[in-house]
Design a protein around this nucleic acid. Structure first.
Lengths: 125, 125
DNA sequence: CTTGCCTCTGACGTTAGCGTCAGGTTTTAG
DNA sequence: CTAAAACCTGACGCTAACGTCAGAGGCAAG
C-alpha cells in the first residue's frame, strides 16, 4: 500500500509556500531566519516545506497583524506544536491576549470618534 | 472687566503640554514639524500653546494608536477644526474607518485563537 | 543547448514616530 | 547673582518586517 501514506506528501518549494499563503518569498526566508520555520533542503540546497507550512505561515500573518513580534511567536511556538506550556509561556499568552484586548478597545474608541466626525460632516455639507 | 475673558488664557510652554498630554517634549516638537500643531513664539523663541492643545495632542495619540499616519491626520485636521469637508476628505474618513474596522476584526480573530490556545494549555498541564 | 523561470546567499534600503546626545540660550527659584 | 531646570536647533540612532538589488546556480521544456 503506497497510497494514502501522509509521509509521501509532495514537499513544496518556497515559491509555492509564498503564493499559497499570500506572502512574498522574502518573507518566508525571513521567518526561517527568525526561527519560525525549519526547512529541509534538496541536494542542491533549495528549501523544501511540508504542505501544512502554508497554514503555519498564514497563522504567523495573523499573529503579526495582532502585534506579536517574530521573537514572541517563536517563544510561543511550542504551545501549539506540543500543546504543552510552562508557567512563563502561559504568562506570555495572557499578556499578549490582554494587550490585544486593550488595543481592540483603543481602536473601538478611535472608531467611535471617527464615526462621530463622519456623522457631523455628512449632515453638515 | 478683565476677568472671564477667554482670550486671556495663559499660554502653555511645551513641557506643560507634554506632561498634560502624557507624551514627550520631543513628540510635541515632532507634531509641529509634521504640521499637526502651530505654536506661537515668545520673544526669545520658545513655543507657546493654547490650553486646548493638550486635548488635541491626546487626540493625535488616539489616532496614532488607530494606525493613522501624521500625514493623514494633517490632511484631516480641517474636518474637526472647521467641521467642513470636501469629497476627498469624506472619502478618506470612510477609508480610515473601514481600515480600522477591518483591523478590529483581525484582532478579534487573533484574540479568539489565543484564547483557544489558553483554554487548551490551562486544562492540559 | 538554451531559454526562461525559480532559487540561492549576502547585504543595503525603507518607514514612522519618536529617543537621545551635543552645545548653547532662557527662565525661574532661592 | 547663581545654579538648576527648561527650552532651543540640528542631527544621528533605533526597531521590525520585510523590499530590492547583485551575482550566481539549478531545472524542466523545446
Amino acid at each position: 500500500m503506497t497510497v494514502g501514506q501522509a509521509a509521501d506528501e509532495r514537499l513544496l518549494r518556497i515559491g509555492e509556500v509564498a503564493r499559497g499563503a499570500g506572502v512574498s518569498v522574502r518573507a518566508v526566508r525571513y521567518y526561517e531566519q527568525q526561527g519560525l520555520l525549519i526547512a529541509e533542503r534538496s541536494p542542491s540546497g533549495q528549501r523544501l516545506y511540508r504542505q501544512d507550512t502554508v497554514t503555519l505561515v498564514r497563522f504567523f500573518q495573523q499573529m503579526f497583524a495582532a502585534g506579536l513580534t517574530s521573537r514572541r511567536i517563536a517563544e510561543l511556538l511550542p504551545c501549539w506544536d506540543t500543546g504543552h506550556t510552562d508557567a512563563e509561556q502561559r504568562a506570555m499568552l495572557r499578556a499578549e491576549r490582554d494587550r490585544i484586548q486593550a488595543k481592540v478597545d483603543d481602536l473601538q474608541a478611535a472608531l467611535d470618534r471617527l464615526d462621530e466626525v463622519i456623522a457631523i460632516t455628512d449632515t453638515h455639507p
